[in-house]
Amino acid sequence: MWYRGCKTCNKKVTEAMDSGYWCEGCQKKDDECSLRYIMAVKVSDSTGEAWFSAFNDEAEKMIGCTADELNMLKSEEGEGNEFQTKLKEATWSSHLFRVSVSQQEYNSEKRQRITVRGVAPVDFAAETRLLLQDISKNKTSQ
C-alpha cells in the first residue's frame, strides 16, 4: 500500500549500507524517510466497477490517515486491531472522484489506466438538488 519516500522530493528511497536512506533523485542520504501511499483501488457504482490508481494525497483522503500513521497501527497489532478497523472503515465508503484516463499498450494489449486526481466526500444534499433540477428540466421540455 505504500513505499518509503524521500522527505524532500517524495521519490522512492533505498536503505543505505551503514544506516539511513539514500535518495537517487536528490543524490543524498537522510536518516529518516516517510511512507507514501501507492494503491490500486477497486471502485464501483451502479454502472459497474473499475480499478483506479491512487497516490498519497488522494489515498490519505480515502483512508483517513497518513501512511506513517497506518503503519504505526499495523505494528501495534493489539487486541482492538485498529489497523484492520481503519481499512474496513475505508471500504464501501462513498466519494466523488476526479480521474484521468490514459490508454497504454502492454504485450500488444491496450489497457486503460485510471488515476485518481481528486477525492471529495459526497454532498448528498447538493446531489439531490442537482437530480431535482434535472427532473424539473425534463418535465418542462416534454
Rank of each mutant, 00 (worst) to 15 (best):
L130S: 08
E127L: 07
R129D: 15
E109P: 00
P121C: 11
F124Q: 02
N81F: 04
Q133Y: 09
T128N: 11
L87Y: 09
R98Y: 08
E77D: 09
V119I: 13
L131G: 05
Q84D: 13
I114H: 04
A90G: 15
D134A: 12
V101Y: 01
E127C: 08
P121F: 03
R129W: 02
E109Q: 10
A126K: 07
L96D: 07
E79N: 09
F124L: 03
P121M: 10
Y106D: 06
L131Y: 08
K86S: 07
K88R: 13
S102E: 15
R111M: 09
L87K: 03
Q133P: 02
E79Q: 08
N107P: 00
S102N: 14
K88H: 09
E105M: 05
R117M: 14
F97L: 15
D134C: 10
E82C: 04
W92D: 06
A125Q: 15
S94T: 05
L96K: 12
V99R: 04
S108C: 06
F97E: 07
H95Y: 13
F83Q: 01
R98K: 13
Q84P: 02
Y106N: 09
S102Y: 05
E77H: 05
V122T: 13
V116Q: 00
V122W: 11
N81S: 06
E109M: 09
S100P: 01
V122L: 15
S102R: 13
E109L: 08
Q104L: 04
S102A: 15
E105P: 02
R113H: 12
G78E: 03
D134E: 09
Q112S: 15
Q112R: 14
V119T: 02
K86G: 01
S100K: 11
E79K: 07
L131V: 05
G80A: 13
K86N: 02
V119H: 01
W92H: 06
K88S: 11
E89L: 04
R129H: 08
E77P: 00
H95G: 01
T128L: 14
V122S: 11
R129E: 14
S102C: 13
T85K: 06
H95C: 03
Q133C: 09
E77L: 02
R113E: 12
D134R: 08
A126C: 02
E105V: 07
V116C: 11
S100D: 13
P121V: 11
E77I: 00
S93M: 12
S93A: 14
W92T: 00
F83S: 01
D123G: 11
E109N: 07
I114G: 01
T85W: 04
